[in-house]
Design a protein around this nucleic acid. Structure first.
Lengths: 248, 248
DNA sequence: ACAGCTGGGTGATTTAAGTCACTGTGTTGG
DNA sequence: CCAACACAGTGACTTAAATCACCCAGCTGT
């Protein structure tokens, strides 16, 4: 038992050290944090916490993966993010003292490290470098969310779809050229939910891209045939330019 | 001159002390920060910094007000936020090291305090309480932006308009009841820019609300006549329920 | 083998938004 | 006083998107 506990602590530290939030911190600091956490197992499909429920702390994913989502008033459930090992859930309420912003559910059997918000705050006060890292991460998130908002507001579905494909492609394979392919295991309905649209529209938009030979699709594999054309779809200029219409 | 400088320092501290970012900090800490800043005058209409330009630091509004906006590729310019005295501009790039996320322009003659990003970082390392406050503010912003994104994606213009009116009303007068009024000195075009739409649509939406006697408008003064109806406009359910149409 | 499910593909119709073009109504300044 | 301008109001038209209502694979369990 004693042995178990030590091993577990070590494991927690390993995960924390690899997390973007705590990298570059001395082992001593990590040990301190790891010691304060409580572990928790979460079988697949189980809910960890629910949106609007008062928050007591945040969670670090030690194994498995957890999905955060929200139920919109019109009924559809929208995935916000998925966290794998080292990922953090519910950091926002720890900082601002509010309620959980989303509902989270284990995508597979997972283990989590719970850190009470007071512990986290105390830790950050004692380790200001960690606080600065946290600030950097939140700031990045803010940018991401803001640009996401922009996309949702200003572009038509085809443009948003093209943007998403480009992002996905870049994530898998940063050096982009014609012919790169990647796997995107999402149903049209899931795609639609990420794009803020509905299945039918996504189907038709995808079709359009395929017919224009901008991309090709085989099952869950997406091949980018014409990077330039895809980029053109991305920005609203393409509409204005008569040349591009001819090319299609 | 010497006198000027002292007075100026005092003024800076007064503003900083009232800013959400630095309230509750000891005067000594504020003085330290104020001393590191450089003041800058910005006549109305002048641009402070431009989106995507590398960021050297952030600005505190000492007087006047400054508007942050972005030019979208399709030409329209979208207001992101407006900061008055005590407000902060460009904190995000200070934390994440990136470029300015928006363009900012003085809405009226303004004075600003520039704080170099290294100075801010050093300050936060030495005053972890301030870092925690900053985290809280960023976290709140994240929530706001996220809910904003949700709104943009899921609601029609009338719904977004209703939401904006409710928010505005709550900011001026937190206890909401039928008959509260507030001033909203925005042209329809400016409203449209905040709602991600165009003037004509906003005009018609407003008209609709007025005709349904949900709100009344006299010049720049908005009176909320029927709070419940306004709230109903806010969520997409209202469409589904035929009863609500009768009630209006 | 087939009922039932899930994911995809389509046509027809409706609707909110955007676009254009023009009118009306102040305000401001020469 | 009138030209110029900015803002608001409107009608007519166009167009993405959403919605509805189907059909058509494949796959799964019985």
């Amino acid at each position: 038992m004693r042995q178990d506990c030590v091993m577990s602590l070590q494991r927690r530290m390993d995960v924390l050290a690899k997390s973007a939030w705590f990298e570059n911190l001395p082992a001593k600091a990590l040990a301190e944090l790891a010691a304060q956490g409580r572990e928790r197992k979460l079988p697949q499909g189980q809910i960890l916490f629910t949106a609007n429920e008062p928050a007591e702390g945040m969670y670090v994913v030690l194994s498995g993966s957890v999905r955060a989502f929200r139920e919109n008033i019109d009924g559809r459930e929208q995935t916000i993010h998925v966290e794998g090992v080292g990922g953090i859930l519910a950091e926002v309420p720890v900082f601002d003292g509010g309620a959980y912003p989303s509902t989270t559910m284990a995508e597979e059997d997972s283990e989590l490290l719970f850190l009470a918000k007071e512990d986290v705050r105390r830790f950050l006060l004692q380790h200001p470098e960690a606080a600065l890292t946290a600030l950097a991460i939140l700031a990045k998130k803010l940018r991401t969310v803001a640009s996401l908002a922009e996309q949702l507001s200003l572009k038509d579905v085809t443009q948003r779809l093209a943007t998403l494909l480009l992002e996905e492609a870049r994530r898998k394979n940063p050096k982009l050229l014609d012919g790169v392919s990647f796997s995107m295991p999402l149903s049209h309905a899931q795609l639609a939910s990420r794009l803020g649209s509905v299945r039918e529209v996504v189907t038709r938009s995808l079709q359009k891209l395929v017919q224009q030979e901008v991309v090709a699709i085989h099952g869950h594999r997406v091949v980018i045939l014409d990077l330039k054309a895809l980029r053109a779809q991305t920005d609203p200029h393409s509409k204005a330019s008569p040349a591009s219409a001819a090319r299609r």
